[in-house]
């Protein structure tokens, strides 16, 4: 039990650091909601190594603490909507992919994250027109999800002992 909590705390800390460092890097594309989402590496890793319950705890802690530390409480709702939809989709995907297809799970998760995020933005801004950004956000989700998914897959293979 202690070992489990320590492991979750460690992963949360790592995810949080990745999240905060990434937030300092300016995004080259002027489209709302696009980012690499490197903290997703930890979510995917935890999903396959620790299981759904622990992953949810890590994800929620990272999202809440992340918005506290980056001073952006207004963006919490978008992260939360995206994060939870991403989590739900990965919950399904983890059952239908093999250990060499972890990246697929990550791609689907990232695309769902962006769908959830823009849905929240449309509700809050009451602007249905924001959906115009959906294709470009989903495309960025595919690319970002592929990258973070491959990172997570390598991590899973190299760190079997942890």
């Amino acid at each position: 039990m202690t070992k489990r909590i320590v492991r979750m705390a460690l992963l949360t800390a790592v995810a949080l650091i990745i999240f905060i460092v990434e937030a300092q890097i300016p995004v080259p594309v002027p489209i709302p909601g696009i980012k690499l989402g490197l903290a997703n590496i930890i979510t995917v890793y935890a999903m396959f190594r620790l299981g759904p319950k622990d992953t949810l705890a890590i994800l929620l802690c990272r999202v809440f603490l992340g918005s506290v530390f980056s001073g952006q409480m207004t963006t919490l709702i978008y992260s939360l909507a995206g994060g939870l939809l991403c989590y739900a989709s990965m919950l399904i995907m983890r059952r239908i992919v093999t250990e060499n297809q972890v990246w697929v799970c990550s791609v689907i998760g990232a695309v769902c994250h962006n769908i959830g995020q823009i849905a929240a933005a449309m509700l809050i801004a009451q602007t249905a027109g924001l959906i115009i950004y959906l294709p470009v956000l989903m495309l960025s989700g595919v690319i970002a999800g592929l990258f973070t998914g491959l990172c997570a897959q390598f991590l899973l293979k190299r760190m079997k002992k942890l």
């Binding site: 207004t74 963006t75 801004a125």
Partner: peptide
């Protein structure tokens, strides 16, 4: 495509 500032909820 609208101009969006999500942190300030401005569109």
């Amino acid at each position: 495509t609208p101009i969006v500032c999500m942190p300030h909820r401005l569109v």
